[in-house]
Simulated scan of single mutants.
Amino acid sequence: MNFLPTLRSLVSTYQAFEHYSAPNVKALGLTMTQFDVIATLGNQPPMTCKELGEKTLVTKGTLTGVLERLQTKGILERKINPEDGRSQMIGLTEKGQKLFEKVFPEHLRHLDRAFKNLSAEQLKQVEDSLSLLKNIF
């Protein structure tokens, strides 16, 4: 059980990231999940719900509700998938793309204030360590 300190560090790091990131996203008028969906769809062609779920790591049940709320707000649209009529293609509307173009760079600037405290070498080390950890699962 020598992995418990690593696990604790991983969880506390994620919590610290959420504590830093979430208030900024909320100030932009979005939930973290809404931001994740908008950031994933921004500057991208429409994608299926399955693809969106895989790219955002949002559970299917949560994703369905978030998509409905964003559609109601006119931020995204769903169209029948021309390659498979059983699925839908999800993409940002013009209003959604403009929202993406506003909130995404603002949030990146916010995150940059923290990440700029690490050198390029340190960032690479963190990335490599996280990749190593991910690959054991």
Rank of each mutant, 00 (worst) to 15 (best):
M1D: 15
M1F: 11
N2Y: 12
N2P: 14
P5N: 01
R8H: 13
S9L: 14
S9Q: 08
L10Y: 01
L10V: 11
L10W: 09
V11A: 12
S12M: 11
S12R: 07
S12L: 15
T13M: 08
T13I: 03
Y14F: 13
Q15N: 06
A16Q: 12
A16E: 07
F17V: 09
E18N: 02
Y20N: 11
Y20I: 06
Y20A: 07
Y20P: 02
S21W: 13
S21C: 05
S21R: 08
A22P: 07
N24L: 13
N24S: 06
V25H: 00
V25P: 03
K26R: 12
K26G: 00
K26C: 11
A27D: 09
A27C: 02
A27R: 04
L28M: 08
L28Y: 00
G29M: 05
G29D: 09
G29S: 02
L30P: 00
L30C: 10
L30F: 00
T31Q: 01
T31A: 03
T33P: 09
T33V: 00
Q34L: 01
Q34K: 04
F35H: 01
F35I: 00
F35P: 08
D36V: 02
D36P: 07
V37Y: 06
V37D: 10
V37L: 02
L41K: 06
L41E: 05
G42M: 06
G42R: 02
Q44F: 02
Q44A: 12
P46C: 04
T48A: 01
T48Y: 00
C49I: 11
E51Q: 10
G53L: 06
K55D: 14
K55Y: 06
T56K: 05
T56R: 02
T56N: 00
L57Q: 08
V58C: 04
T59C: 11
T59G: 13
G61L: 07
T62F: 06
T64E: 01
V66A: 04
V66I: 00
V66W: 06
R69A: 11
R69Q: 08
L70G: 02
Q71P: 13
Q71R: 13
T72W: 12
G74E: 11
G74Y: 05
G74L: 03
L76Y: 05
E77W: 07
N81A: 00
N81P: 03
G85C: 15
G85V: 12
R86Y: 08
S87I: 04
S87V: 01
M89F: 12
I90K: 02
I90P: 10
G91N: 03
T93D: 12
T93Q: 09
E94N: 13
G96P: 08
G96R: 03
Q97H: 02
Q97F: 00
K98L: 09
K98E: 13
F100N: 11
E101V: 05
E101M: 14
E101F: 06
E101K: 05
E101S: 13
F104T: 10
H107K: 05
L108R: 07
L108Y: 04
R109L: 13
H110M: 10
L111D: 14
L111C: 14
D112N: 11
D112Y: 13
R113K: 14
A114Y: 14
F115L: 07
L118H: 08
L118P: 05
A120P: 14
Q122L: 01
Q125W: 04
Q125L: 07
V126I: 05
E127M: 07
E127Q: 04
D128A: 08
D128I: 01
S129A: 13
S131V: 08
S131M: 15
L133H: 11
K134N: 09
N135R: 11
